[in-house]
Design a protein around this nucleic acid. Structure first.
Lengths: 210, 210
DNA sequence: GACTCAATACCGACTAGACGGTATGCATTC
DNA sequence: GAATGCATACCGTCTAGTCGGTATTGAGTC
């Protein structure tokens, strides 16, 4: 086996962790669960990770890398207009609501709920991952603000957090309802709000009279 | 001891469960944790509840009763205007962000994240509790819609889910950041959105020019 | 109002199994 | 030949749930 093939075990464990933790939650997933999902033995697990908590830390970091790569290569970046990129981001978030719940929900959101009071380092890792993502979209929000709403009372960053709050909260309802319908509807409201605060009249709130 | 005093054990266990589960998550809280927090023995626990999962079910129902009672007696119901009541609700949600995280976050949101894929009955109980709450606020939203935005493209119910999504998502960030600031900011955006879709110009998006 | 009796509430030691983590050993690579 | 990657058997602890037992209560009886 080559070096790449050897390191595959670690990657397989990380990918399995993302899936299993998002499905079962962190505390309820056992090391054996992850090993089984990754088709790897326990010995291999503890060779690559000091402990289960250490895996959680690595998984949070891995999630950050994966998602930033994923969003960085998404098509909405092609536009020259920051507002178009922002709305493109929101639309893209709606488009990727495909397949199983574990495929489109957020690891960090689930993880931080379970660990914020008991695992300070995992909480911090989740915070970092989410903050990084928000910082990236905040760049477009700020550029759009300067262009389209320079007198706005709100900060670009707070809009970034608002967008993510809507997403995270909608994921909770997706889990409660076993489907992404609420996410779609909430993203529609979010999109309308963004249109309104950036003074884009084409995003009307009312039905057209025939 | 009177009958009331005897039943106190069960209530103490339920109240303890609300606190401990919101802090540590469901899977990570042990039956002993809850007994200790309630100052009650394990024997008493399993006298009142068949199992830990049975407690979760009871706790979800208990949470529903408690919160609906709490919101029903809140001052914002006094207004005659449904929109005022709705905005009063949102403001009230901001006002109660006091004390510890475990005092203002939502049990059902945490619970459903951990159990949706593995405990169908707990998932359903959480869904029921959240849906009931949304149905109640949707009544005011629908009344406000008929009064202030009869041609609106959106449904009252979807606005109800949107409001709760913002709250639930903001709670996740409150946990990540260890404080309610993000919740306050997200509720400010939410309030502004509601003002806009109900055509209330006083909720301006822009700074006043001096 | 004293007495029985059954049901309810509660107690706490105990158990079986699960789970995180370890120890040891071997094969491959550098 | 030393480090890395991996496999397997094993261990100690933790935890949900049990089980036998006691205390309290409330209804019925006289």
């Amino acid at each position: 086996m080559t070096t790449r093939a050897q390191h595959q075990s670690k990657t397989k464990l990380l990918n399995a962790a993302l899936q299993v933790i998002r499905a079962r939650g962190y505390a309820a997933t056992t090391v054996d669960d992850i090993c089984h999902a990754a088709k790897v033995t326990k010995g291999s697990f503890f060779h690559h990770f000091k402990s289960k908590d250490d895996l959680a830390l690595s998984a949070a970091a891995y999630w950050g890398e994966m998602t930033e790569e994923f969003f960085a290569s998404a098509p909405y970046h092609q536009s020259d207009d920051p507002l178009e990129r922002l709305l493109g981001y929101v639309d893209f978030r709606a488009e990727i609501l495909q397949g199983e719940l574990t495929d489109y929900t957020c690891l960090l959101g689930t993880l931080v709920q379970e660990t914020y009071a008991t695992h300070p380092d995992i909480r911090a890792a989740c915070d970092k991952g989410m903050s990084t993502h928000i910082a990236i979209i905040t760049r477009d929000i700020e550029a759009a603000r300067l262009l389209y709403a320079p007198d706005a009372m709100w900060s670009a960053e707070s809009v970034g957090y608002f967008i993510q709050s809507v997403l995270q909260g909608a994921f909770i309802f997706a889990k409660a309802k076993q489907g992404p319908e609420v996410v779609h509807e909430s993203l529609a409201h979010l999109r309308r709000y963004l249109g309104l605060i950036f003074n884009q009249p084409q995003n009307s709130t009312r039905k057209e009279k025939p």
